[in-house]
Design a protein around this nucleic acid. Structure first.
Ligand SMILES: [Mn+2]
Ligand SMILES: [Mn+2]
Ligand SMILES: [Mn+2]
Ligand SMILES: [Mn+2]
Lengths: 220, 220
DNA sequence: GGCCTTATTTTGATTAGTCAAAATAAATCT
DNA sequence: AGATTTATTTTGACTAATCAAAATAAGGCC
């Protein structure tokens, strides 16, 4: 059985490689799992011995098919648990990430399946993050963000790519959640500012960096 | 934060001391947590240093008030999780114990409270085991068992004190679950045999040992 | 090409939890 | 009481995971 630490490393390699199959740097991995770089190196070498990752010393890591399979299963647990916590237990969507970080290692595949059924086989979690399918398929659709999308046109928020409670709470308070339609009224790059309006709401200003964390699609 | 190992030790000291406040022997504790006796000694000394147990060398352990508080919280999580798994996810009651053994260490107090509310503040889990209250009160009601109760009188099953999947599956298959009313038709101590009948069912034989694991109360 | 900066790896220690097997104390049995 | 059996503790060793700090390699810059 993979330990909790192993599951966390694999999951973060998956998240950091983001669709593409290029190498994940040690530094990025270390800071994602919140360990010192040397620790990541040690662990990655152990994972490579187990055949879960491929390690190119001095360059980075990537998942093997087996490592990817495990990582996807953990990610599926994480996101289904988040969905359960929000949809069934009515928890604050800003808090469920920390909760799921633990639970993803404690639930069995059977509980996973039953949760999935109870929730009606959701495609995304409460933040719009895609839930890997039981067969290990993970949607990697590319979206525009509030920092890059067309202006003066309605766009629908599909995903918030940031787990910090602070950001999520801010988004919630301003109604920036998956499903909401907004319109970018102004984008001032030198000032690093994006201004937007919810249909029938008042204006809201956001930094370009913050806007870049909110994925959108054209509102049909 | 208490580690998973610490939580397990504390929970088992609580279960083994069963209401009374006498000492739990090292041997019993070691086999409950499935470690070698020396390991239990080492851990108990560490727990004593943390003020979670009182260790009387060569005689045994008992929980301090603080250790008891922690242990009750873990036990509450365990039993509420079991209840959730059976009542909401419709899992087999024979399998939920193993599942809860992991989950009891992964859920936060907030999730605990929400689960409790979702389930309607149950008093017992699916096996009839009492669920400690949020304030740390644990019912210690004493019941007769099918090995000791009156014969030829209806008795209602209130609890199965045995977690093994085999036993629970056997009990389920024969309709021996909390709530069911049965009647002991014969008890042959020398032969070590108990015979009983479900109201309107056929006879069923059980060893005295097995019968002793099924707690009952007079059916009014 | 050589130097400098930065990322990565190595080395040496530490902590939590565990086991095997030897040592010791307590109980039990002649 | 003395001997034997049984439970507990001690000792020494091991694994997984981590950090601090020194050593090393890459990549970019003059
Ligand atoms: Mn995690
Ligand atoms: Mn999410
Ligand atoms: Mn447990
Ligand atoms: Mn139970």
């Amino acid at each position: 059985m993979a330990t909790i630490a192993v599951e966390n490393y694999l999951k973060h390699v998956l998240l950091l490689s983001a669709g593409s199959d290029d190498l994940v740097s040690m530094g990025a991995l270390a800071s994602a799992v919140a360990v010192v770089p040397g620790t990541a190196t040690t662990m990655v070498k152990a994972l490579a011995d187990e055949g879960l990752v491929e390690h190119q010393p001095r360059h980075g890591v990537r998942l093997t098919p087996e490592g990817r399979r495990l990582a996807l299963n953990v990610l599926r647990k994480h996101r289904l648990v988040e969905t359960f916590l929000v949809n069934v237990l009515k928890m604050d969507w800003a808090k469920v990430h920390a909760e799921a970080e633990q639970l993803e290692h404690a639930i069995s595949d059977e509980v996973l399946d039953r949760l999935d059924a109870l929730l009606g086989h959701p495609q995304t979690d409460p933040h719009g993050d895609p839930i890997p399918s039981r067969q290990g398929k993970l949607s990697s659709q590319v979206y525009a963000t509030l920092a890059t999308c067309v202006t003066d046109r309605g766009v629908r928020i599909v995903r918030i790519t940031e787990q910090s409670p602070e950001f999520l709470q801010f988004a919630e308070q301003n109604g920036l959640q998956p499903g909401t339609t907004v319109r970018v009224t102004d984008r001032n790059v030198p000032a690093g500012l994006v201004t937007l309006k919810k249909s029938g709401g008042r204006a809201l200003a956001l930094s370009i960096v913050a806007a870049g964390k909110i994925l959108v699609e054209p509102a049909r």
